[in-house]
């Protein structure tokens, strides 16, 4: 109970309660996240069960009853008669899963590389940071595309569709570890000089334990900020790759895939198939980004 109170009255929470932008974007993210997690319960239709689809329902405009069946869909239907609202909920599941998993992977690699580079120094540091520098000269989205292409090539043909989501996670994760590594290394170099680390060394703790139990907890706040901003970037990267047709497979459409499908109906007037997934993607990416900005300011009072 007391712990809760301390947490609620901490500086970060105070700043959160008094920032309308942070509150607003938190609510948007929370609603979208809940919608994605509980998609099977909320979605009025199961877009992946062909038995429940009725082709007669195709191209129903949002909110209007269908001319043949009389059914109404709140955000309309696509050419196959799939409910757009339901496909968005299921699409968000894929987008968010890929986003979170990719950031987790990037974080794992980046933190490990950064800790080792900062703590060990020497040629280990030189090699890790050189690789990071080289990767940083290429735009992340290009790196992700290249890794996706290479990994797809190495995957046996019969597993390509099943594995696509995992390949996507690896590609995006490997494309954004550099930010984490740079920040963690910088912070580790500072922490390494402090007395508590020297004390731990003196009582004979292993390098591994010092990095993990002593230094890591003290470099976590910048990592948290980068993770939030990386999440927004990863969601956009996933959407871009899927939009280009080199991401999520057609059997597991993400928001990007839905936008790709919707673009095909731009000229024939069925705007809702494109419009609603695009708005969802923007709302998601923008509010995660705003949360990241707020977090950066809140954890770093010096910047204000």
């Amino acid at each position: 109970m007391i712990r809760m109170q301390v947490w609620w009255q901490s500086d970060v929470m105070w700043s959160f309660r008094h920032s309308p932008v942070a509150l607003g974007s938190f609510i948007v993210v929370a609603v979208l996240l809940l919608g994605a997690v509980f998609a099977p319960l909320i979605a009025p239709h199961d877009p992946f069960n062909p038995a429940t689809l009725n082709l007669m329902n195709g191209f129903t405009a949002p909110g209007a009853p269908n001319a043949f069946t009389g059914e109404t869909f709140i955000l309309g239907t696509d050419d196959q008669g799939r409910d757009v609202f339901s496909t968005i909920l299921y699409g968000m599941r894929i987008s968010l899963f890929v986003g979170f998993a990719a950031v987790a992977l990037g974080m794992l690699i980046g933190i490990t590389a950064g800790l080792v580079a900062g703590y060990r120094g020497g040629w280990t540091e030189t090699i890790i940071m050189r690789v990071a520098d080289v990767q940083l000269t290429f735009p992340a989205i290009l790196v992700a595309m290249l890794i996706f292409g290479i990994a797809k090539g190495f995957t046996p043909v019969e597993y390509r569709n099943e594995m696509a989501i995992w390949v996507l996670i690896i590609a995006i994760g490997l494309s954004d570890w550099v930010q984490f590594a740079r920040v963690v290394r910088g912070a580790t170099l500072v922490e390494k000089q402090k007395e508590y680390v020297q004390a731990a060394q003196l009582i004979g703790r292993s390098g591994f334990a010092i990095m993990l139990r002593h230094i890591l907890p003290n470099v976590m706040s910048p990592v948290l900020v980068i993770a939030t901003i990386s999440l927004a970037l990863a969601i956009i990267a996933e959407a871009t790759l899927s939009f280009l047709g080199v991401g999520a497979p057609p059997t597991q459409p993400s928001l990007g895939t839905l936008i790709r499908i919707g673009q095909g109906f731009l000229f024939s007037g069925e705007w809702w198939i494109l419009f609603f997934p695009a708005c969802t993607l923007l709302a998601l990416a923008l509010s995660v980004n705003l949360l990241g900005d707020w977090l950066r300011d809140a954890l770093n009072p010096k910047l204000r």
Partner: peptide
């Protein structure tokens, strides 16, 4: 300049512009 060439992949796909970016995306597919 490098970013422009990398992001051309996306633009070329949206507009079906027959450049090397579109070629690359089709090659991955």
């Amino acid at each position: 300049l490098g970013s422009i060439i990398a992001f051309a992949i996306i633009t070329e796909t949206v507009f079906q512009w027959p450049g090397v970016g579109l070629l690359f995306i089709n090659a991955i597919q």
